[in-house]
Design a protein around this nucleic acid. Structure first.
Lengths: 230, 230
DNA sequence: GAGGATAATGTTGTATACAAGTACACAATA
DNA sequence: TATTGTGTACTTGTATACAACATTATCCTC
């Protein structure tokens, strides 16, 4: 599985390398405990060590690798990691929705509905990359609307990981024809409807359910994917 | 105000530069909207651009600067930022305490009490640096005990900022002789007692109160400090 | 053959060099 | 005067070079 080239338009070599490595780590192509050296990666990508250093630092702050004196150790995503990421996502979104409930958010609702339309369109065309991207986008514009710089930073810290995991999981869902796509879209609709009703406890409940389900799916797909690649 | 040299033992130039710059930004010595160039900083510190780049990337992921094409723009800590950081700290600690309540934590309690003793000692010797460090340490070992990798990452993302803010605020508190030190120590004792009682709703309440008070103090000290330096 | 000194290799951290692009001043021109 | 073109200085992104240290292999000694 390759990182979509169009998403890397205008990105520096360092960012590109980070994205490629991240996807390989999340998808399990690069397995945990693998030791990455800057020279080796620089050779693989045909670049110098400078952008590689930048990429490794990025992956380190995301918690995907551990920087040691000699080499970077790949940590990867364990089942526990995925649970934990959803803990954080749950917090972020409930916090943000709580905030949004105190504020005008009509524009947001229409924007979210537009995104859901795009998701349906992507599903129809079996474009899992677009679907995953819109899925991410849905949650992201909600967070952006929350206007909380620090929460946004938390999100940015896990954003790329979530995107990579969504890519892997969505591809799996699409190819497996498990017919989980429609329910997934419906769940997003439910979030919007909760936002319209402006009932914060209902929002929390919907979000909780959404992440509970998604977590299980992602957990299964990402982890079984890892086994496949073994 | 200088970053304590002993804390930089064994750190790379990049980390040292990051720490020095961070403190200057948080304390307001470097004011918001200042534009930092890699060359300029490299000259100031007498190093090459390589470690400076590393430092700037660190400060960027911490949200203290914004990396643009020409130069890095200093963002600094506004009053809103401080509020937001305490939102995150409140979430982290309530989440962690909720987890700890389901688990044996006698060792943690004794460790926390030891730290409070060190805080009292530091207060007696008017050692505000040690006091600030132990204050940070108190919260940190609680978070570590929570055994939640992703939350720990959130913490690591704000840890250095919190430390810098604590340094500035604690110095102010000590020199102003505002007699706020004893109540502050007592608040930490209260957290420990809540932990001992193992009543999670009480914990939440205590933490909320703790951060509410501390937020106000830090907000005042850090921001007035900025005005002073103007 | 076993163990230890030692050389070779590989690693990171830092410095320097170069290339591509941007902003800005300044002059020439309409 | 306003505008446009140009040169210059500065910026980042990347490549390369070097130093200090860690690891590993080798060879020598026993």
């Amino acid at each position: 599985m390759q990182y979509p080239a169009s998403w890397l338009q205008g990105a520096s070599l360092g960012e590109k390398i980070a994205c490629e490595l991240r996807l390989k780590i999340v998808s399990g192509t690069i397995k945990p405990n693998t030791i990455l050296s800057e020279n080796q990666i620089a050779d693989e990508f045909g670049t110098s060590r400078s952008p590689v250093r930048e990429a490794l630092k990025t992956l380190f702050t995301e918690g995907l690798i551990r920087l040691e004196r000699m080499g970077a150790v790949v940590l990867g995503l364990t089942s526990k990691d995925i649970e934990e990421i959803y803990d954080v996502r749950f917090f972020i979104e409930t916090f943000i929705l709580e905030r949004l409930s105190k504020v005008q958010h009509e524009n947001l609702v229409t924007a979210l509905n537009q995104i859901i339309d795009k998701m349906e369109m992507a599903a129809k065309h079996h474009d899992f990359i677009e679907f995953a991207y819109q899925d991410l986008h849905f949650h992201e514009i909600m967070i952006l609307e929350g206007d909380h710089t620090r929460i946004l930073h938390l999100w940015n810290n896990i954003r790329h990981i979530v995107l990579a995991a969504l890519l892997v999981a969505t591809e799996k869902r699409f190819t497996a024809e498990t017919h989980e796509i429609k329910p997934l879209i419906d769940k997003h609709r439910l979030i919007v409807s909760a936002l319209v009703l402006n009932d914060s406890s209902y929002m929390k409940q919907v979000i909780q359910k959404h992440f509970e389900d998604t977590r299980h799916t992602v957990n299964n797909t990402v982890l079984t994917h890892k086994v496949h690649e073994k």
